[in-house]
Design a protein around this nucleic acid. Structure first.
Lengths: 210, 210
DNA sequence: ATCGCCCTCAGGGGAATCCCTGATGGCGCC
DNA sequence: GGCGCCATCAGGGATTCCCCTGAGGGCGAT
């Protein structure tokens, strides 16, 4: 995508700020639209389908997250905020933004960030990227404490149980009788202190065992 | 943390590569250790507690993910790999790495990346960061297409079903009879074109409805 | 006010699940 | 050789799950 072709829209509840950003980007990129609230933003994005939407995180009627949630189009989103609080960053990224820059950014850097987002890259300050990773990799270390109680065969049955197979099917897949599957399943439930295979499913899914 | 104080260790199964990286970093940073396999790496990290561990993603006996999993210390990890395949990047980040760079990186850039990771920042090429975001924000657009078919009450029952509660318990929690729960459950399965509540659990989990 | 949708509940039945007792054979360990 | 653990299987019973038909009341829309 050549630079001049990048079509960008600006969403912020402050008219003045929008003008400022527009002035900074004009000449560098093609500013095709503005919006001052969630409703207008959704409509504008729907209609114009800009390549990139510059999005304020904090707005009276819901903020950037709400805008992203509503506008399911082909536009990409770049959050632009005064805040660099982890919570804000995570929330807007979770919603689907492809980058996050603070409003103190220089004009040329901002234009460059927009181009990169338009290109499919993600744009982050290293510090902010760290926040995202903290949230992303926050998978509990899978305390094997309980899982170690299980015998190899029981773990195997556990896998199948968690995937939702019938006892009958598990028996066929493992080449054993249904009664044996029952025995293993019973042992698994007992050792993990669960009552039903449904709880087991939830348990296993939580632990990413499937 | 001043530059010269950053203590870094190198883990790679190729002796020659380790030497090369060590040579590149010597003078810029303090290389305190090396390891050629998962076992040695775990022991080395435990003993030396380097600030940053440069980690090869692909190794015969498990790879970088295994190293990170075992070494629960205060060291930070920076993945260093020839591969920039999304799967590899995601896996090692999930495990807890704070950055990912390809082996083609220049010496000074590598040293800089290490320093930044030591500082708590995350280091990524924009392209790789995009992969991480794709996986992270992979909140499937929650295509309400099917979910909209459900009535409010049915959605409520769906929540409980996905969590593995017995019909009896759902009935108690919602203050209705088991028969009514059955009716709702049946409607949910029919509308979502699923057969069992196990499939439903998987379906709901995929959509982050729990 | 009739129609449609939602929520509620019942009876009944076939299949699956869960638990219990009890049994056999293999394998490692002292 | 015993002893323990594991994997295998059986019978039987209680419960749960899923589906079917049927039905009443509430509530909004045409």
């Amino acid at each position: 995508m050549s630079d001049a072709d990048v079509r960008v829209a600006i969403v912020d509840d402050h008219e003045g700020f929008r003008s400022g950003v527009r002035a900074e980007l004009e000449g560098r990129l093609q500013v095709v639209g503005e919006a001052g609230g969630v409703e207008q933003a959704a409509a504008m994005i729907q209609a114009l389908e800009p390549d990139v939407v510059l999005l304020d995180v904090h707005m009276p009627d819901g903020g950037g997250v709400e805008v992203i949630r509503r506008a399911r189009g082909r536009s990409r989103f770049l959050a632009l905020s005064v805040s660099d609080a982890p919570h804000d960053v995570i929330a807007v990224i979770r919603a689907g933004a492809r980058g996050y820059v603070t409003k103190s950014i220089a004009a040329e850097e901002l234009a460059d960030a927009v181009r990169r987002v338009a290109d499919g890259d993600a744009v982050f300050s290293p510090r902010l990227a760290g926040f995202v990773l903290d949230a992303f990799a926050a998978v509990p270390p899978t305390d094997d404490a309980e899982l170690d109680l299980l015998t190899p065969r029981e773990r195997e049955v556990l896998q199948h149980l968690a995937r939702g197979y019938l006892y009958k099917e598990i028996a066929r897949r493992l080449g054993i009788s249904v009664k044996t599957v029952e025995a293993h399943a019973s042992a698994v439930l007992r050792k993990l202190q669960l009552s039903t295979r449904h709880e087991l499913s939830a348990w296993a899914l939580e632990r990413r065992l499937v």
